[in-house]
Amino acid sequence: MRLILVGPPGAGKGTQATRLVAKYGIPQLSTGDMLRAAVAAQTPIGLKAKEVMDAGGLVSDEIVVGIIRDRIGEEDAQKGFILDGFPRTLAQAEALDQMLSEKGIKLDSVLELRVDQEKLVGRIINRAEEAKAKGEAVRKDDDPEVFKQRLEAYNRDTAVVVPYYAKSGLLTVVDGMQSIDEVTAAIDAVLSRLDENV
């Protein structure tokens, strides 16, 4: 099962990815984690990434796709993987497609957790207020201003990958405003249909 999870910050991708990992026994691949692991392991591509990061630059799509290429070649990713937070741009989606096709691998599905963004902002504001009321620190991600900036970045850069995957017939939209369990059930229904077609 080779999946991509798409959706704005706060849509529940991380929660659903954790459940998919448990159900299918496939790894969730976060580009940030993979980047850090490649740098720590001093792989050739990790060393290249370290050089760019040390210089204060942003790691290129080419390097990120190279890190994904190495990672999906590992033993635990042979049955599949979940990409969460990548691709973030159209160029990354195209580079990922090209790399997978060179490896003879096809994606099974791209799941978009679609949410009402205004309600999402409201949810984050509530979460921040609840944390303050309990005397807890507000997570940086839950700061409403930071969250709005992340949402703007998603709408500007990442939302464009949705029509790209819709055109290829891989996209399934899941209502991310349902309860966590209902979203999980909707995803399970999509994936079990895929399993039947394999």
Score class of each variant (00 low, 15 high):
Leu35Ala: 03
Ala37Met: 03
Val39Asp: 08
Val39Ser: 10
Val39Tyr: 00
Val39Met: 10
Val39Pro: 14
Ala40Ile: 02
Ala40Phe: 00
Ala40Asp: 13
Ala41Glu: 15
Gln42Glu: 15
Gln42Pro: 14
Thr43Lys: 07
Pro44Leu: 01
Pro44Gln: 00
Pro44Asp: 06
Ile45Pro: 13
Ile45Gly: 07
Gly46Arg: 01
Lys48Leu: 14
Ala49Phe: 01
Lys50Cys: 10
Lys50Gly: 08
Lys50Phe: 01
Val52Asn: 04
Val52Gly: 08
Val52Thr: 11
Asp54Ile: 07
Ala55Gln: 10
Ala55Asp: 10
Gly56Thr: 13
Leu58His: 07
Leu58Trp: 07
Leu58Pro: 12
Leu58Tyr: 06
Leu58Cys: 11
Asp61Lys: 02
Asp61Met: 04
Glu62Val: 13
Ile63Cys: 05
Ile63Lys: 02
Val65Gly: 11
Ile67Trp: 02
Ile67Asn: 03
Ile67His: 02
Ile67Phe: 02
Ile68Glu: 05
Asp70Ile: 08
Arg71Cys: 03
Ile72Ala: 05
Gly73Thr: 13
Gly73Cys: 06
Glu74Gln: 14
Glu75Thr: 10
Glu75Val: 07
Glu75Gly: 04
Asp76Ala: 14
Asp76Leu: 13
Asp76Ile: 08
Ala77Gly: 11
Ala77Met: 08
Ala77Thr: 12
Gln78Val: 14
Gly80Ile: 06
Phe81Trp: 02
Ile82Gly: 05
Ile82Leu: 05
Leu83Ile: 04
Asp84Phe: 03
Gly85His: 01
Gly85Pro: 09
Pro87Leu: 04
Arg88Pro: 14
Arg88Phe: 00
Thr89Asn: 11
Thr89Met: 10
Thr89Cys: 09
Gln92Leu: 07
Glu94Gln: 09
Glu94Ile: 03
Glu94Pro: 09
Ala95Lys: 10
Ala95Trp: 01
Leu96Thr: 11
Asp97Phe: 03
Gln98Ser: 12
Gln98Gly: 13
Gln98Leu: 05
Met99Leu: 08
Leu100Arg: 03
Leu100Val: 15
Ser101Cys: 05
Ser101Leu: 11
Ser101Met: 12
Ser101Arg: 04
Glu102Val: 10
Lys103Cys: 12
Lys103Ile: 11
Lys103Val: 12
Gly104Lys: 09
Ile105Gln: 06
Ile105Glu: 05
Leu107Asp: 06
Leu107Cys: 08
Asp108Pro: 11
Asp108Asn: 15
Ser109Thr: 14
Ser109Gly: 14
Val110Gly: 09
Val110Arg: 11
